[in-house]
Design a protein around this nucleic acid. Structure first.
Lengths: 138, 138
DNA sequence: TGCTATTTTAGAATTATTCTAATCTAGGCG
DNA sequence: CGCCTAGATTAGAATAATTCTAAAATAGCA
């Protein structure tokens, strides 16, 4: 049960985002959003699309991921140099990052409290990201 | 006044880190640590070294930055895909990230309170990074 | 069905970083 | 003090992720 996914299906989702529902975008949206919260890299998504017999070029994967981020269907998470993760959970939340495996895990925003937020000297706060980096036991 | 820099000079710093004080490492340490807290990229440091008439190859810049990180003289900060920042402030603290300029600004750890930290399902917490992303006013 | 703006694509280009193998040097030793 | 060697530096090639380009495909309205 993903109470946070506001769209019944990929088609509605794309329509709401004003993105033309092409074969590729529909397929990628399905792969991304039909399995609950996920953190995928471009490469992973490319492989999954291929596995699902939906050949999509890597260029389109990147185009689509960025369009989805702009439409707030996805959120980009940067924890590791040289590789972006795309998070299907766009609700306010934070992350564990497991250094050994390179995996991310969501932390619901009410599980952490960030208080006393200082105001920036200029501009407006866009987002507050908390990343808890986890390494091996000892 | 940088009350947090525990070494009088670059030489002592390298000795304490068990890194042979070569011409390049001494020069880079000076550039990095003699100007208070900084956030530099490899490219920036390379340029500054060149400007200081200390020609250092980019390979050495990267080697040195990573050795300094391993020795806890520097901390690597990842906020932007495809580019690492190296922070001369290794005390526990957090960051503003200004999306327009790509600049980082330290936030002392006592200016933010992160409470209620959940325990990871496995492994040990290495570090908690809070990044406040700041965009243009409107 | 035809038309046009949008999308997709292959492949080249770009960017940051790492690797490799050859050369250099710090610093201990005789 | 000069020699020797492990460790350091280097140029340049290699890699990896991502972006760009310009041409071919397609969605969807008229």
């Amino acid at each position: 049960m993903s109470a946070h996914r506001p769209f019944a299906n990929a088609l509605d989702m794309l329509r709401a985002a004003k993105l033309r529902p092409t074969r590729q975008r529909l397929a990628l949206a399905k792969i991304l959003f039909e399995k609950g919260d996920r953190h995928v890299t471009a490469e992973q998504l490319h492989d999954e699309a291929a596995a699902a017999a939906v050949p999509v070029s890597l260029a389109t994967i990147y185009n689509t991921l960025h369009q989805f981020v702009a439409a707030r269907l996805l959120r980009e998470v940067v924890v590791n140099p040289g590789r972006s993760y795309f998070d299907t959970n766009v609700a306010d939340h934070h992350h564990f990052f497991f250094e050994e495996t390179g995996k991310l895990m969501d932390i619901a925003s009410d599980r952490i409290e960030v208080t006393n937020l200082p105001q920036p000297p200029q501009g407006a706060i866009r987002r507050v990201d908390v990343v808890i980096r986890v390494g091996p036991k000892s």
